[in-house]
């Protein structure tokens, strides 16, 4: 085990802060107020509201050593009671509507909602299905949209950091 541990130290793979001009404008608008509230940390509750699971794969990748999101003060929390941000994926199926609402309501204010992926933002392939409500914004107000099908980890990270005003 020691050899494996040392190897990790000798060949670090963690990459520099991603920059994405797409979020720069947004960062300016959001950051002053959110930064005042949040300081330098963001507790994120992730919720799948009907995703194909593609978005979750890339959100999970944020924790791998290449992106290592915790070094930016971002962390995923298990309870909505501990969360500042609700990160939602999927076109919001009818069957997940109530769970989405209840999770949101369980979060203390102030709170922000991020819609990640084309489905969550309303332009995915399932948007017009009668089994779906079509977008997160059809149920709760959305503060930030991170497009992509699925959004890459670099883009997810850039979007989340825009909330903190780090980039």
């Amino acid at each position: 085990m020691l050899r494996t541990l040392l190897e990790g130290l000798r060949q670090p793979v963690t990459e520099a802060l991603p920059t994405d001009p797409e979020f720069a404008e947004l960062a300016k608008k959001l950051s002053r107020e959110t930064r005042r509230r949040l300081g330098r940390s963001l507790a994120i509750r992730m919720l799948d509201a009907g995703s194909c699971n593609g978005c979750e794969l890339e959100i999970n990748a944020l924790a791998n050593p290449f992106y290592d999101l915790e070094r930016f003060g971002l962390s995923f929390v298990a309870s909505p009671r501990h969360a500042d941000v609700l990160l939602v994926t999927g076109p919001v199926t009818r069957n997940m509507r109530e769970a989405l609402l209840r999770t949101y309501e369980a979060m203390p204010a102030p709170k922000w909602v991020v819609a990640a992926g084309d489905c969550a933002s309303g332009c995915g392939v399932f948007a017009k299905s009668p089994a779906c409500l079509g977008a997160v914004s059809a149920v709760i107000a959305v503060d930030l949209v991170i497009p992509g099908c699925p959004p890459t980890p670099a883009r997810l990270l850039a979007g989340l950091l825009a909330l903190l005003g780090t980039n």
């Binding site: 799948d48 999927g90 076109p91 199926t93 009818r94 399932f126 299905s129």
Partner: peptide, 22 residues
Amino acid sequence: GYVHRGVEALMEGKRPEEAAKI
């Protein structure tokens, strides 16, 4: 069933290239 998106019904009436995206 929580992530039931109505996939099969949504594919009906679509051309194969469109349905392939679903």
